[in-house]
Computed example of a mutant assay.
Amino acid sequence: MNIAILYTIFAAVSTAANIGAQDLSTRLYSGLGAVPFSVFIGTGIGLVVKYVLDKKWIFKFKVANAKHDASTFALYTVMGIVTTVIFWAFEFGFNHAFHTKEARYIGAVIGLAIGYITKYQLDKRYVFATHRAS
């Protein structure tokens, strides 16, 4: 299957995991700081889902051991900081502008789409190409 199609499918799966985790989080807790907490939880869930899928199916990356996997995931996470700022800016921006969870989720989807396009290039160049097992 074409890498672009597969990556798009995985981005959609990760986006669904992120938004689903956020929605579940706000259903379970609606008190002070519920929205930022839900965004943090969703971001973490989406990150792990995307890493597992990208590592195996997009980059066909094999880790040498648990330490190598952990360090690769750490680098993957660092590369995701920039893209997370993009995603959060859209999500919180839409939340601030429209004050509905639906608008917040639309902002999240737009931000995640832009972020994933950027993240692919970062991961291809800096995570999975340069962090091979020795």
Rank of each mutant, 00 (worst) to 15 (best):
Ile86Glu: 01
Lys56Phe: 12
Ala103Asp: 09
Tyr116Glu: 14
Val85Thr: 12
Ala108Ser: 13
Ile5Gln: 12
Phe40Leu: 05
Ala21Gln: 04
Ser38Met: 03
Asn95Val: 06
Tyr105Gly: 06
Thr43Glu: 06
Asn95Pro: 01
Ile45Glu: 02
Val35Tyr: 03
Gln22Ser: 02
Phe37Gly: 04
Ala129Thr: 10
Ile81Lys: 09
Gly80Lys: 00
Tyr105Gln: 15
Tyr105His: 12
Ser30Val: 12
Ile86Gly: 01
Lys124Asp: 11
His96Asn: 13
His68Glu: 09
Val52Met: 14
Thr84Ala: 09
Ser134Phe: 04
Gly80Glu: 00
Trp88Met: 07
Tyr29Gln: 10
Gly80Cys: 02
Ser25Phe: 06
Gln22Cys: 10
Ile19Met: 07
Phe128Tyr: 07
Lys55Phe: 04
Pro36Trp: 04
Tyr126Ile: 09
Ala66Phe: 15
Val109Ile: 15
Leu47Tyr: 02
Ser30Met: 02
Leu32Tyr: 02
Ala17Tyr: 03
Phe40Tyr: 05
Gln22Asp: 00
Val127Tyr: 03
Phe98Asn: 07
Ala11Pro: 00
Asp69Lys: 07
Tyr105Thr: 11
Thr8Asn: 04
Leu53Val: 07
Thr83Gly: 04
Thr72Gly: 02
Ala89Lys: 06
Ser71Ile: 14
Ser71Cys: 03
Val82Gln: 06
Val78Ser: 02
Ile41Pro: 02
Ser25Arg: 09
Tyr76Phe: 15
Ala66His: 11
Phe87Thr: 08
Gln22Ala: 06
Phe10Trp: 02
Glu102Cys: 12
Pro36Leu: 14
Ala70Lys: 11
Ala4His: 15
Leu122Thr: 00
Tyr116Ser: 11
Ile5Ser: 12
Thr130Tyr: 09
Ser30Lys: 10
Ala89Ser: 15
Thr130His: 13
Leu6Lys: 15
Leu28Phe: 15
Asn18Tyr: 13
Leu112Gln: 10
Met79Ala: 04
Thr72Pro: 00
Ser30Gln: 12
Thr100Phe: 15
Ile45Thr: 09
Trp57Pro: 00
Arg104Gln: 11
Ala89Met: 08
Ile106Gly: 06
Asp54Lys: 00
Tyr120Ser: 00
Thr84Asn: 07
Ile45His: 00
Ala11Phe: 06
Ser38Gly: 01
Gly93Glu: 07
Leu47Thr: 11
Thr15Val: 14
Lys101Ser: 14
Thr83Val: 11
Val78Asn: 06
Val85Gly: 08
